[in-house]
């Protein structure tokens, strides 16, 4: 028997939905077990009736609710509350749903400052009042994760989450399990680079040069990016970006991690932990430009990013 599923995207980029498609060939076997009642990019189910005549939003009953994206508008807030009411298991899919994600960097400003820029200060835009119309949903006071509004049963972080974990979590539910979570490991725990617990010291270098490595050699022959003197957030970031096998994806591109899977465990302080990690290899963490925004790039919900009284921190 196929299980009823409702999937919805809120303040999202659709990368999580593409990650569902990136399940690849196993998707063909998985799809018949899942009866998608609503998924905007794939199925023509409407929330205001198939003839567009309903007075209020109608979310179907489901066993599994999957929501990607954080909450940015009052309508999205209402939408996730309706899904919660009508589903047994709510999955927060992806880092925006789990932590606010990249768009929660807007929380560094007051809403009116963002609107001022978008509608009155862009050089190609005719300076105009903010769009205000019953058809344009109002912004919430901040961009939030969904667990700031409703109870979440399962979190699958990642920007995007790896398809392996989507299959794993959904399969767990299909097998009758009621919980699922990624193992508490750091990106460094899954990263094969050489670590000697020391660097050349001094200020943290800006990422204006490539890492030192021999292209024909594997990552196991490359020195740790922090120890090369650059900021890499693997130490404080939950592992899993490469799925069940494979090496961390940004490192594979020979580029530093920026924390897209969020913190290793709930309640940890990635910013503080990261500064300590840099100090421990002899680097001066105060030298990092724009560190508040960089280190909270994916986790600006939960009050982690707020407007500062003066200019943005450097």
């Amino acid at each position: 028997m196929a299980v009823n599923v409702v999937e919805d995207w809120l303040n999202a980029c659709s990368g999580c939905e593409i990650s569902i498609l990136n399940i690849g060939d196993p998707l063909v076997d998985l799809l018949p077990q899942l009866n998608f009642l609503h998924i905007t990019p794939l199925i023509d189910h409407k929330l205001f009736g198939q003839l567009g005549e309903a007075a209020a939003m109608e979310v179907p009953e489901s066993v599994v609710g999957i929501v990607s994206g954080g909450i940015r508008t009052e309508e999205q807030k209402h939408e996730v509350q309706e899904i919660r009411k009508k589903t047994k298991f709510l999955i927060a899919l992806g880092t925006c749903a789990c932590f606010g994600g990249v768009p929660a960097q807007a929380n560094m400003w007051k809403n009116e400052d963002v609107f001022e820029k978008i509608f009155r200060q862009c050089p190609s835009t005719e300076s105009s009042p903010n769009p205000e119309d019953p058809n344009v949903p109002k912004w919430t006071p901040a961009c939030t994760a969904i667990d700031e509004v409703v109870k979440v049963d399962i979190s699958i972080p990642g920007c995007p989450p790896h398809p392996d974990w989507i299959v794993d979590a959904v399969t767990a539910l299909l097998e009758g399990k009621t919980s699922w979570s990624l193992p508490e490991r750091s990106v460094c725990d899954t990263c094969p680079v050489i670590r000697e617990k020391k660097s050349g010291g001094g200020p943290v270098k800006r990422w204006l040069q490539n890492m030192e490595f021999k292209p024909e050699e594997g990552l196991e022959k490359m020195r740790c990016i922090n120890e090369q003197g650059y900021l890499c957030m693997g130490t404080v970031t939950l592992a899993g970006c490469a799925g069940k096998a494979g090496v961390p994806r940004c490192i594979q591109a020979r580029t530093p991690c920026r924390g897209c899977f969020g913190p290793i465990r709930k309640g940890s302080q990635p910013l503080v932990d990261m500064l300590n990690a840099l100090s421990s290899v002899g680097l001066d963490p105060k030298s990092i430009l724009d560190r508040r925004a960089i280190m909270n790039r994916y986790v600006g919900g939960h009050g982690n990013l707020k407007p500062l009284p003066a200019r943005p921190a450097r």
């Binding site: 303040n11 768009p103 807007a106 400003w109 820029k117 978008i118 990422w207 920026r258 724009d290 925004a293």
Partner: peptide, 18 residues
């Protein structure tokens, strides 16, 4: 179109290489 994220604002202050 019912969503707006504000990239043009929140990219202000970020290092170009990011």
């Amino acid at each position: 179109v019912q969503n707006l994220r504000g990239f043009e604002k929140f990219c202000e202050g970020r290092p170009v290489e990011e």
